[in-house]
Computed example of a mutant assay.
Amino acid sequence: MDLSKTDLPQTEDEWRVRLTPAEFRVLRQADTEAPFTGEYTDTKTKGVYRCRACGAELFTSDTKFDSHCGWPSFFQPLAEDRVRYIEDNSMGMRRVEVRCANCDSHLGHVFEGEGYGTPTDQRYCINSISLTLEPRED
């Protein structure tokens, strides 16, 4: 399911019908799932992670790493045009929100300079409920 922008729901009420209440809270209202509860937090399965709302390919398992933060972490998106960034000054801190570029759904946040041994020194901290995993065989 990779929906084009013309096939996407146009109103929040249409999104509410398409998504479960928990998915709607995170994807459309920028909520955060509880740490260490998401289905992909510790997953090692190889494949492509897609936006749960529209099916757009966002991340690959090749860029997923163990950050032990409670959410799936990636050091880069599949391509920069797959996500968009919004400055988020909520909760008394400066963060950068990550959204799906195709459907504008909330995915999580990106942090940098935390000292992880990754090629980009970035951690895309993404809610499991914002993703689906399409496994691939090696």
Rank of each mutant, 00 (worst) to 15 (best):
W71D: 08
L107Q: 02
R99A: 09
E39L: 00
D66N: 15
S73A: 15
N89V: 09
E57Q: 15
T45L: 10
E57R: 13
L19G: 01
M93T: 12
P119D: 00
L58T: 03
V110F: 11
E87M: 07
S73H: 07
A56H: 11
Q122V: 01
H109R: 07
T63Q: 02
F75W: 15
D42L: 13
T20G: 06
S67A: 15
V110W: 09
D104R: 07
G113N: 12
Y116H: 10
D66G: 05
P135A: 01
D7S: 14
Q10P: 01
T132G: 09
D7P: 00
E112M: 14
A34M: 12
E97W: 09
P72E: 02
D104G: 06
Q10H: 12
S105Q: 01
T60A: 00
Y85A: 07
D104Y: 05
L3Y: 12
G113I: 13
S128H: 07
K64F: 03
R82Q: 11
G108N: 06
T43C: 15
Q76C: 08
A56K: 14
E87W: 00
P21G: 03
I86W: 12
T37N: 10
S130M: 06
A56P: 00
M93S: 11
V26M: 11
S128K: 07
T45G: 04
R136W: 03
R95F: 03
D138F: 08
E112V: 03
G92T: 13
E57K: 14
R16Y: 10
Q122N: 13
T11Y: 00
H106I: 06
P35K: 11
D81G: 09
L3D: 04
D62N: 08
D81A: 12
T41A: 13
F111R: 06
A79G: 12
A79D: 14
E112R: 14
E112L: 09
S61F: 02
I126N: 08
M91R: 14
P35G: 05
L27D: 02
L133N: 00
P135S: 03
L133K: 01
F59V: 02
D42M: 06
A79C: 07
S73T: 13
E33G: 01
E57F: 01
P119A: 04
E33M: 04
A56I: 10
D121Y: 10
G108A: 05
G113H: 12
